[in-house]
Design a protein around this nucleic acid. Structure first.
Length: 660
DNA sequence: AAAAAAC
């Protein structure tokens, strides 16, 4: 059976698809932005066309239909409510959309289907451009007591029919390395601190066990214990930004489709009323940003009393200076059950020791897991560092963008993400670029939520192929087709650098990251050089000189990026850690996972295969011709010290066949 | 000094 015909989700999309749609490539400069249909002047050589709108009528008829009464739905408890949200009408689903993101289609898999339709992939194409051999090299390291062994297929884990069906609908064919290791750990009920780059399937890694657990253990309890308006979710997923929360929510909706587990999202900047109404419909899994959640808890609209699962995405960010008090409040000073009485899962690409120490308070007898591609996409991202004086930055950026523009010959999407330090700087650059013929839009925390989301949407779909962003966009966001990340202002920490460049090189495709480095960034030179060496990047000699000078600054900044402990190293192993009895940390492996990682992002999932061939390789001007798939074959990846747990089984039959 | 996150 061909992939083209096997998907149920595809059929749903097909039946609700509007026959014609507007072209995707549109740029409308700021001063014309509210005039739909206007086109930009002669300055730009980017594609012009009518504004891409989201017709209100595009929403499909209630996708849930009677789905919530499906076989895996828990007993009678909430049956009485089912009628209320079965068979949503068109008008209803529009007006009650909890997120200001326009829902194009109530089918949560619409993006999966669209991707496949647009790309017209055949089964043969799916193999193209994927380096399956690279999977064998992925270093994995775990520490803690009795670490459950990894699995090789989704079927090896008893996730249940419903979840398995949704995995199929998402076209996931084989678990990614982080999923192979983290899911069994989480399914065994263990607490987990995991280092794995976003884009390597992290969201699914914590969502699958949570959904499975909610379905089997919590569903019947999730109804309100009686006090009116308060809702009692069984699982809480926290995110540092609103856009990431929204993204996690959308993913979780797919995974929980027709399962009976209800997912909801709450975050600031959007009307509280809508979110509350959505909560009143029942919520098992709540995705949230901290501020809005605290607000709702204090208003007694949400109680954490019945929380059985707590997940922190970008956990190190959630516990850094600005965030820690809020998180501590939610986790320790509201009504959440203590460690041991709940299961806690922490994920991030970077995990500094100090943060691990804080995070340990939230966990009990946890497993520390480091899975492939820690800290960076390494081989997939070509990193360039250029010395640019502050006053020359704009001119320099302009040159890069021009170059790039000339190279986009086939009208393919080639998105450029430009990171700046401040909100003011973002506005300034957005304006300057727009005035000078570059289709740019900015996203930062001073914009109202609608604008933030519009900017992101406009960037994602290619209407505005240059996004100027603060660190609000540095973590977790999955934006396909970002071919170039430019660090216009060098980030404040090397971890931020890691997260920022991780916005490109996704889905197994190459990406380019260019950083502007000036004198004042000298304190980070050493850490940067170490990071670049780890990922086999060419380090300019002038940068080496800076790094040598910065020795005198002490090792603080570069602490995590020494020879072998790249992104994360279980702090319990360090000499000066004298843990309590809680922390057995039987070392199964000695060396830490490794220097070079070949995790090919979403490649495991069939849904990301399609970019292949015509995207990425040629779309970036200054792109390093030398970093393509060929670089995998060299065998130059030294997998330092990934002992013990790093034997990997069969990789045959990775592709779709596994599902039939 | 700066990002982010509630109203």
């Amino acid at each position: 059976m061909s992939l083209r015909t096997m998907s149920w989700a595809e059929a749903v999309t097909e039946s609700t698809r509007k026959p014609t749609r507007q072209p995707l490539n549109t740029y409308v400069p700021p001063h014309l932005r509210y005039n739909a249909g206007s086109s930009y002047g002669p300055g730009s050589s980017f594609t012009e066309s009518t504004q891409y709108g989201f017709p209100p009528s595009y929403a499909g008829g209630g996708y849930r239909g009677g789905g919530r009464t499906g076989p895996s739905r828990g007993g009678g408890g909430r049956g009485g409510r089912a009628g209320g949200y079965g068979g949503r009408s068109r008008g209803w689903s529009q007006s009650s959309n909890p997120s200001p993101y326009p829902k194009q289609n109530r089918d949560p898999f619409h993006d999966v289907s669209e991707k496949f339709e647009k790309l017209q992939v055949s089964e043969e194409d799916i193999n193209v451009g994927i380096n399956f051999d690279a999977y064998e090299d992925i270093p994995v390291d775990s520490s803690g007591e009795d670490v459950p062994p990894p699995v090789n297929t989704f079927q090896d884990i008893d996730l249940g029919d419903c979840l398995n069906n949704n995995i199929k609908r998402c076209r996931y064919v084989k678990p990614t390395p982080v999923q192979r290791h983290a899911i069994p750990i989480a399914m065994a009920g263990r607490d987990l601190m995991a280092c794995a780059q976003t884009g390597s399937g992290k969201t699914a890694a914590f969502c699958f066990p949570i959904i499975s657990g909610v379905l089997t253990k919590c569903l019947s309890r999730s109804q309100s214990p009686g006090d009116g308006w308060t809702v009692f979710p069984s699982a809480l997923i926290l995110s540092p930004t609103r856009e990431l929360a929204s993204q996690i929510y959308e993913e979780a909706e797919k995974f929980a489709y027709q399962s009976g587990a209800k997912v909801a999202v709450v975050y600031g900047g959007a009307p509280m009323g809508q979110q509350l109404r959505e909560l009143e419909r029942g919520v098992d899994i709540l995705v949230a940003t901290p501020g809005r959640l605290v607000d709702m808890i204090e208003r007694s609209r949400v109680s954490l009393k019945l929380i059985k699962y707590l997940a922190l995405d970008e956990a190190d960010r959630m516990l850094d200076m600005g965030f820690e008090p809020q998180i501590r409040k939610i986790v320790q000073r509201m009504d959440m059950p203590p460690p041991g009485a709940r299961q806690t899962l922490l994920f991030s690409a970077t995990f500094p020791n100090e943060i691990q120490r804080l995070a340990a308070d939230f966990l009990k007898n946890y497993i520390f897991l480091t899975v492939g591609r820690v800290g960076s996409s390494t081989d997939l991202i070509a990193q360039k560092v250029e010395f640019v004086r502050d006053m020359d930055k704009i001119k320099h950026l302009c040159g890069l963008l021009k170059n790039q523009r000339e190279n986009v010959t086939h009208g393919k999407l080639a998105l450029t993400l430009v990171f700046v330090e401040t909100k003011k700087g973002a506005n300034h650059l957005e304006n300057w670029l727009s005035r000078n013929g570059f289709p740019a839009i900015a996203i930062h925390g001073d914009k109202v939520q609608m604008e933030r989301e519009r900017a992101l949407r406009s960037f994602k779909c290619g209407s505005t192929p240059i996004l100027v962003a603060t660190d609000v966009a540095s973590r977790g966001l999955d934006i396909p087709h970002v071919s170039h990340v430019i660090n216009f202002d060098f980030p404040k920490s090397i971890d931020d650098y890691v997260h920022r460049i991780g916005r490109t090189g996704r889905a197994g495709k190459s990406g380019l990251a260019t950083a502007f480095f000036s004198e004042k960034n000298q304190p980070l030179a050493k850490a940067l050089v170490e990071l670049m060496k780890e990922s086999k990047q060419e380090v300019p000699s002038w940068l080496n000189d800076y790094a040598d000078q910065s020795l005198s600054y002490g090792g603080d900044q570069s602490q995590s990026y020494g020879s072998s402990n790249f992104g994360g190293y279980d702090f319990r192993r360090s000499e000066n850690y004298h843990g309590s009895d809680n922390y057995g940390y039987g070392d199964s492996t000695v060396g830490v996972a490794a220097a070079t990682f070949n995790d090919v992002a979403g490649s495991y999932a069939a849904d990301s295969f399609g970019y292949g061939g015509n995207y990425g390789d040629s779309s970036v001007a200054a792109s390093a011709g030398s970093f393509n798939d060929a670089s995998y074959t060299g065998g130059e990846h030294d997998v330092a010290g990934a002992s013990g747990s790093s034997s990997y089984g069969n990789y045959e039959n990775i592709v779709a066949g596994g599902w039939d």
